[in-house]
Amino acid sequence: MSTDARPEPGLSPERLAFFTDAIFAIAMTLLAVELEHPDDKQIHSGGALWEFLVDQWGSYLAFALAFVLLWSVWRRHHQLMDRVRRLSRAFAFWHAPFLLLVAFLPFPTAVMGASITNPMAQTLFAGTMAAMVCCEATLKELSVAAGLATDDPAAIRHHAGASWSVGLWFALSAALAWLLPYAYVMWFLAPLAAACGARLLTRLRGRRAATVSVP
């Protein structure tokens, strides 16, 4: 490979992908570390241990939900990085808030697990997720706008639309949490929001492009 083909120092796609994978792995592990453990008295009594486990159902639900969400965000980022052949400074920069939110997610997960129907706890979690997936969408938009991804830019824009839709869905759930104690149920419908939102935004992009191209 010639010297000219080497990426600019600090803009290596491989190093950024490896670092991102490490942050996701640590965050997903910390989700389990935040789970409360039974004390010595509870651990030696079957009935007391059962009561403890039942009492902690909110923590287990929050853990499972956050783990699945982080897994899905990581998988989408993995697919994006497999398409990226070079980086821009803006693309690298936006990984800072993106990974900050990934690393922060175990905290709102623990808070929500302690009081899953608390509107402030739901708002903290939903707000973190909304900001994270919006950063994810921004990365996808930048990869297409700067020509960083050489493989199917239309598909990447479609996936960006899905991420914007999920971000809006979580923001909406944060607002509804102050009216409905079980607004978190909306989060289980995030895949549906992504699919419907992506199709809608793709159509709107197509109409806008057609309008602009008309002389």
Score class of each variant (00 low, 15 high):
residue 5 A to V: 09
residue 7 P to I: 09
residue 8 E to P: 11
residue 11 L to M: 14
residue 13 P to L: 13
residue 17 A to R: 08
residue 24 F to D: 06
residue 31 L to D: 05
residue 39 D to I: 00
residue 45 S to P: 12
residue 46 G to V: 15
residue 49 L to E: 02
residue 52 F to R: 02
residue 55 D to R: 10
residue 57 W to H: 01
residue 58 G to P: 06
residue 62 A to R: 00
residue 62 A to P: 04
residue 64 A to C: 11
residue 67 F to L: 14
residue 68 V to H: 05
residue 70 L to D: 07
residue 71 W to M: 08
residue 73 V to H: 03
residue 74 W to R: 14
residue 89 R to E: 05
residue 89 R to I: 06
residue 90 A to W: 01
residue 91 F to P: 08
residue 92 A to F: 02
residue 92 A to Y: 01
residue 95 H to E: 09
residue 97 P to K: 06
residue 99 L to Y: 09
residue 101 L to S: 01
residue 112 M to Q: 01
residue 113 G to D: 08
residue 117 T to N: 00
residue 118 N to D: 14
residue 120 M to Q: 05
residue 122 Q to K: 02
residue 125 F to Y: 08
residue 135 C to N: 11
residue 135 C to F: 03
residue 140 K to S: 15
residue 140 K to G: 15
residue 142 L to K: 07
residue 148 L to W: 08
residue 148 L to R: 06
residue 151 D to K: 03
residue 156 I to E: 10
residue 158 H to I: 15
residue 164 W to A: 10
residue 168 L to G: 09
residue 172 L to C: 13
residue 173 S to P: 09
residue 173 S to C: 13
residue 174 A to V: 12
residue 176 L to P: 15
residue 178 W to S: 12
residue 201 L to D: 09
residue 201 L to P: 06
residue 205 R to C: 05
residue 206 G to C: 02
residue 212 V to F: 04
residue 213 S to K: 00
residue 215 P to R: 08
residue 215 P to V: 06
